[in-house]
């Protein structure tokens, strides 16, 4: 759970989390809802966030960590800027999604669960995303790419994100005030 980049104690997102937790007071079984909200705010769940929720709700860090480590949706480490989910549901698998996954790992030179060296991409093997009719599919963030029959398409898809990113960097460097963006890429 150790993170190179700590989240500051006075991060404004903690305030938003508090407002949300306040509304839940008195309700039963809120550990999961709290963690879901926190992940939505922070993108992942480092130890500081666990501690914060624990202090607010009285649920022990151990119990929270038990929950966050149980469910595959909760991320204990930061991800790449774009999350590539390769659907490994049965319909996609029988139509060759393993090859798609292998190819992506090869192109980015990372394994499943890792972040690419430029920080742009991370790969996850997703459970069925429910588009079995369009198999094999991959999803980058919320965008679905269907019928990946030609593996050469993948390079083009990745490139489209890289060039978008390059354009964004030029803008942010030019304006020189978009710290977050540059930090994300560092």
């Amino acid at each position: 759970m150790c993170q190179p980049k700590q989240i500051a104690v006075d991060d404004p997102r903690f305030l938003e989390l508090d407002t949300f937790l306040k509304k839940l007071q008195g309700e039963k079984g809120i550990a999961m809802i709290a963690l879901q909200k926190a992940q939505q705010l922070f993108g992942y769940l480092p130890l500081e966030v666990h501690k914060h929720i624990s202090a607010f709700t009285g649920i022990s860090v151990a119990e929270l960590y038990g929950v966050s480590s149980f469910y595959s949706q909760f991320l204990l480490e930061a991800e790449g800027k774009h999350r590539i989910s390769v659907c490994m549901g049965t319909a996609c698998y029988v139509k060759g999604s393993q090859k798609v996954l292998d190819k992506l790992c090869e192109l980015l030179n990372i394994k499943v669960g890792e972040v690419s060296s430029d920080g742009l991409f991370s790969i996850t093997a997703a459970r069925c995303i429910g588009c079995c009719g369009l198999a094999p599919v991959i999803m980058i963030d919320e965008e679905v790419y269907a019928n990946i029959v030609d593996l050469n398409e993948l390079e083009q898809i990745l490139d489209s994100y890289r060039s978008k990113e390059a354009a964004a960097v030029t803008v942010s460097v030019a304006s020189a005030d978009n710290k977050g963006e540059a930090e994300d890429l560092a």
Partner: peptide
């Protein structure tokens, strides 16, 4: 167990 907020066991 999951609706109760715990590990879904």
């Amino acid at each position: 167990a999951s609706i109760e907020g715990g590990r879904g066991m």
